[in-house]
Design a binder for these strands. Structure first.
Lengths: 132, 132, 132, 132
DNA sequence: GTGGTCTAGACCACG
DNA sequence: GTGGTCTAGACCACG
């Protein structure tokens, strides 16, 4: 059972929230290689989100190689999903470099960032190498 | 002499670029307590940006307590500017917690983040206590 | 049905009149938690006020936590709207302290202020506790 | 010795601050019937305020009958100053009626306003009838 | 000169 | 449809 939430008041577009949510389901192992994704109309109904918005998220996830559509039978998780997600996350990290330079320049010390990371990484399990 | 650049084609709104740029000028010590900012019209002309856009940035910086307007006379850096900037940057860091949890969950290991931080913090001078 | 009036010739800026008017609608119970506000274009048309001016008011109300924008869908009254409005009004009262000290110093006696308050508070209903 | 302060960062125009300040000097008895006001150039120098701004305040105070100019010899306090000041303050109070209605409608209870007035009126001496 | 407000109109992303 | 950003240009009060 997939659990996704969308916050329509967020400045993050809903389709991006959907992408992030699906990626989370996959990295958490709730959705595995070959598993079917909920149909667009199903997810649209359960989340109260416009079908076009679901569609947009699915198309983008397909573009990234995380999911794939089998004509007539919906979307399913690809074998390379985990790897592709990791790749986009690494790109995201790289894009934060300018932001962190600003933080550092404003006086935020590395120790504070380390404390922040301690919070983030507590309880993060060592990810065994899964080739999925 | 203030050096600001704006990229009109960036997906980051111009007024946000201006806010970040002014904050950088202040944290870098190019603009100090009591210093006047360039007038709206002046900056508008030198950057080729509409005065309304400059004003939007100045108003937001005022709201944050970084600058203050003396109507009829212009905008000035407040005594608490450095502190207010640090405060907003700390808030920005806190808001990145979810993002980093996603990165961690996707398999980005702490060592990789530390390498990232090494790059960010090389050449960041120890900020001496400035009381002004 | 929302009833707002703006006086274009007032020395009070239109966007401030809009803020006060919306707050009045909410405190009067005409707009409740979760209710959508009129869209910017709609209100612009019905009041004969430029959309930018409407937006300026909406943005300030958002900043105060009274309303919230759901991009692509519109603005909505927040659950905490009543509380936030009360908070800003209390701040407004506090800011009148200097003004009243001047009145008192000039010889306006407390009895006269009490008579003034009698007029203000006649017909003000006891506000029952509304949890929403 | 007259003590006036102006805050160039206030949204209250400087010339209004000057008017209020002069009225305060008079109601406090620092300036009495017939006393000369500081010359415009003198006050301009001591406050660091544009002479035109001082002039504007003096003209408005003259209009209200609080001060009067003797051609060639500057401005002085009129015999009716106290009375005129009281009159304008009463008008100011009346103009606050709408504001207070909004406060009341938002849920600010009369008891809270009374507490506010307690603070304002503590230490306000009973003003004996001075015809000046 | 300065900032503050407002209009008119355009273009964009998002749903 | 919705809001968000931006430009161009005007007018005003204030100093």
């Amino acid at each position: 059972m997939i659990i996704l939430f969308v916050d329509k008041f967020s400045r993050v577009p809903i389709y991006e929230q959907l992408i992030t949510g699906m990626e989370r389901e996959i990295t958490a192992g709730m959705l595995k290689n070959g598993d079917p994704l909920p149909s667009i109309r199903e997810l649209s109904a359960s989340l109260g989100v416009n079908p076009n918005t679901i569609q947009k998220a699915y198309v983008e996830l397909s573009r990234r190689g995380v999911i794939s559509s089998a004509p007539g039978s919906g979307y399913y998780v690809t074998p390379t999903a985990q790897k592709e997600i990791l790749r986009t996350k690494q790109k995201q990290l790289a894009e934060l470099e300018m932001t962190f330079r600003e933080l550092a320049a404003a006086g935020i010390r590395r120790e504070q960032v380390e404390a922040f990371l301690d919070r983030v990484y507590e309880n993060v399990p060592e990810k065994e190498e899964e080739k999925s």
